[in-house]
Design a protein around this nucleic acid. Structure first.
Lengths: 208, 208
DNA sequence: AGCATATTGTGAAATATTTCACAAGCCAAA
DNA sequence: TTTGGCTTGTGAAATATTTCACAATATGCT
């Protein structure tokens, strides 16, 4: 298991390299990648070497092979079934996000408890209530759940999703969620991002 | 300047402690905070000691004083003027997000180049085109820009925002953005989050 | 007052992550 | 085929971050 920071960088390298490929490039060096991302070439080489892929000394990395390795390690060759739990503004924005489908994520289940929404369709998928959520995710073989419900409701829907067999979650609710050992939950916390900026702004003001 | 990871943890501690305060608690220990967040008490103490605040041995931290310090260091006592650049689904979801206003972020400028949107109102604020963006942000004394335009347009609007004096940005466009020294840009990359999950899923599958 | 129990603050140790630096290998040109 | 200029891969060094461990000290009970 590669460490978290390495995986994040590999994902970004992959993007940059795919862009180079689209421009017709065949080879790329660690320095090229580093420059495009403001990293050190040394770090890029370490990260890539953790894939097992070998470059060619004096030349760099073969783009096609490198992308192959990256896609294979990063799990981007297969499609992944996703459940959207919470169909508010944010949830709808996510589903509509072009990168979502392009990268192989297919939304197969949308859950919301607003009676006005239940039964309606979003992006062609019928909105269902959270009743029997565990069974629903199990039946549809959902691999990833995206949680965009209000903070108070988050732990409960996560528990159901996990009971249904989901092991990968992306949580937008700004609360700490407890999951059993072996379940992976990532947090995207917009208030936290804003507050980070506030800190930096404040620091700047005080130390001017 | 505290390090990034420490600031992120302090923000979360602050939330947890405010919740305890709302429940009527007056004191909190590093162990309490650690337990609520699955961190070690030792880390919590180090983080808090980096604020300068001293707790009481044998007792813990005075919640009121600790929140004071946190709010002051984190810059949460003042309000911050925010510009939303890109008024798509995601941008609108952000502005409507309850945590946004509650934490002191006030949206004062909304920019979008869709002719259908220009002139219309979102949350009571008129949508304007990106024409003369630098001047607009300067005139309204915007401190923070939230970038939710498509990837291709991102660098350009960031350049204008920076020219207008903005030093803190939150970027949702999935591209590397270059900013001058001294300007702080944070990334929220939803595709990256999803791809991280894909990696973990894939790793699980291969190593079952 | 004395004792038992709790919790902080922080050097020092342990870990984790990044960068340096250079031998080894590849390529092109002469 | 030799030479010179690149670039990789990776030990080892340097940094950064986290955890340990324990003296110092506050509280409450007897």
């Amino acid at each position: 298991m590669l460490n978290k920071a390495t995986v994040e960088r590999l994902i970004i390298y992959n993007r940059v390299i795919k862009e180079l490929k689209a421009q017709g490039e065949k080879w790329v060096t660690s320095t090229d990648i580093a420059r495009a991302l403001s990293k050190t070439p040394s770090q890029v080489r370490r990260d890539i070497s953790s894939l097992g892929r070998k470059g060619k000394r004096g030349v760099g990395y073969n783009i096609k092979k490198l992308i192959n390795d990256l896609d294979s390690v990063l799990g981007l060759n297969d499609e992944h079934c996703v459940a959207l739990i919470g169909a508010g503004n944010l949830g709808r924005a996510l589903i509509g996000y072009p990168g979502f489908k392009r990268e192989g994520f297919i939304c197969r289940l949308i859950i919301d408890n607003d009676p006005e929404k239940i039964g309606s369709k979003i992006s062609g998928i019928k909105v269902e209530s959270s009743e029997g959520l565990a069974k629903k995710v199990a039946r549809k073989k959902i691999a990833i759940a995206v949680i965009t419900v209000p903070a108070e409701a988050a732990q409960k829907v996560v528990d159901s999703a996990v009971a249904g067999g989901i092991k990968e979650l992306l949580n937008f609710a700004p609360v700490k969620i407890y999951v059993p050992e072996g379940v992976n939950i990532r947090y995207v916390d917009l208030a936290l991002e804003m507050e980070n900026l506030a800190y930096s702004l404040n620091y700047r003001k005080k130390n001017k």
